[in-house]
Design a protein around this nucleic acid. Sequence first.
DNA 1: ACCCAGGGTCATA
DNA 2: TATGACCATGGG
Length: 220
Amino acid sequence: MVAVVPKPTLQTVFELLFQAYGPQNWWPGDSPFEIMVGAVLTQNTSWTNVEKAIGNLKQARLLTPQKIIASHHKSLATHLKPSGYFNIKTKRLKSFCQWLLNQGGEMALARRETEKLRIELLSVHGIGPETADDILLYALDRPVFVIDAYTRRIFQRLGLIGGDEPYEQLRKMFEQGLGTDIALFNEYHALIVLHGKDICRKQPRCEQCCLQSFCSVSAA
DNA sequence: ACCCAGGGTCATA
DNA sequence: TATGACCATGGG
């Protein structure tokens, strides 16, 4: 006999995570531009390493699009070193900053329609769907739900997805299932990341997990 | 010594 | 379309 695990709604999962962890107040950063930079630097990289790189940029007073573009590759790469992939990220950060200035700067983005802006972001070399959506949600306050590896892992275990769906399919599923709620999207993704780090990979059987009653792994 | 992080691009089949 | 290689540091 296989135990039948009930499937929670997306709202229920949020409630459980929020009750377990409380508000996360994402994204850490002092300004929208710092958040955008962090979104690029945190690609496949732990946040503690990103903080060091951002600290270097701040100390060198390079945390503006103009200064980043004006920096030489080698110099900028040295500042980014702690965040890993520094040669690639140097190019990506420069491409993004060049795009930002071409758009007319940060203020000009506020008038752009979200979907148009998203397409534009995705056209920048080194900006993929997750990075674009991090920027849209956390720096530009747009109602976009961020999908990452933790989201796939956690919701696969809850039996709500297969886990290999295309990014866009999952994004639309969450956005339609939750309604347009920027504050909810903001908090939800932060909670998913925290929960993913905290428990879901380190303890595959999830004995202490706040989602335990819905988790197909712990019930198996 | 090994595993992986708040991904994305590119080459190959 | 769908895998696999590659990028690179730092903490567990």
